[in-house]
Computed example of a mutant assay.
Amino acid sequence: MKCPYCGYEESKVVDSRSTEDSTAIRRRRECSKCGKRYTTYEKVEDIPILVVKKDASREYFDRNKIIAGLIKACQKRPISRAQIENIAEDVEKNLSNQMISEIRSDAIGEIIMKKLKNIDEVAYVRFASVYRQFKDINTFMEEIKSLMCNK
């Protein structure tokens, strides 16, 4: 770490603590040459995840899009906002832990559907109907029958 005052590359850490939101570590340093103190922040580098859409376009992963879709699917269902946010957080953590840089949108949808299926079947069918783009009542009924058979 170069001193911002004299450019010397050696310093010692005088104080170290987490930031208020615990997303970084704040360090007070003292230059070994000029003795001046300065502050640095250290945080974990996020690897951006690109989502490959059905039309082959790419966009950055956005947890808020998952939350918005889940809110629609869970409307008037006994599912709390905290549960919805937990699903979105679990999906994001799952993708980050895999250390992948790209994922297809349908793979994200499948992960969400597995989680919804365990929480609320009606919300699951609603999400699946939009996600899988059910063309008619027969595909809708097939999904419901598969749900009933897996009980």
Rank of each mutant, 00 (worst) to 15 (best):
A24Q: 11
K2N: 15
R27N: 09
I144G: 11
D46Y: 04
C149L: 13
I100R: 03
E10G: 04
A68M: 03
N86D: 15
Y38H: 13
D106R: 08
Y131K: 11
G109W: 08
N86F: 06
P48A: 02
Y38T: 10
E42M: 06
I103V: 15
K114Y: 06
M141K: 14
I103P: 05
E92N: 04
I84W: 01
M113I: 05
K72M: 13
K65Y: 10
Y131W: 11
I84E: 00
E42C: 04
A24I: 00
R28L: 15
R29P: 13
F134A: 03
R81C: 00
Q75Y: 14
R58Y: 02
E121W: 02
N94F: 11
S80Y: 03
E20H: 01
N138W: 03
S16D: 09
A82C: 01
A56Y: 09
F127R: 04
E121H: 12
Y131G: 10
L116F: 05
F127N: 05
N150W: 04
Y41G: 09
N150K: 14
S101P: 00
E85T: 10
A73L: 07
R17W: 03
D120P: 05
R26I: 07
V13M: 02
N138Y: 07
M148W: 06
V122Q: 04
S96R: 13
K54L: 01
K33P: 02
D55A: 11
E92I: 00
S105Y: 09
Q83T: 00
Q83W: 00
K114Q: 14
D62K: 14
T139E: 14
L50H: 12
I100V: 15
E45F: 04
S32R: 13
K76E: 13
C3T: 08
S16N: 09
A107E: 13
R27F: 10
M99I: 07
K53D: 14
G69A: 12
A73W: 06
R28H: 12
K36M: 13
G109D: 05
A73I: 08
G35D: 05
A68N: 09
S146D: 15
K76Y: 14
I49H: 01
I79W: 01
C3R: 02
Y124T: 10
K2F: 13
E42V: 14
I67F: 05
P78Q: 05
I67R: 05
F127K: 07
N97P: 00
V130E: 11
S57V: 01
K151D: 09
G69W: 05
S101D: 12
N86G: 03
L116H: 06
S146G: 14
E42H: 12
E92P: 00
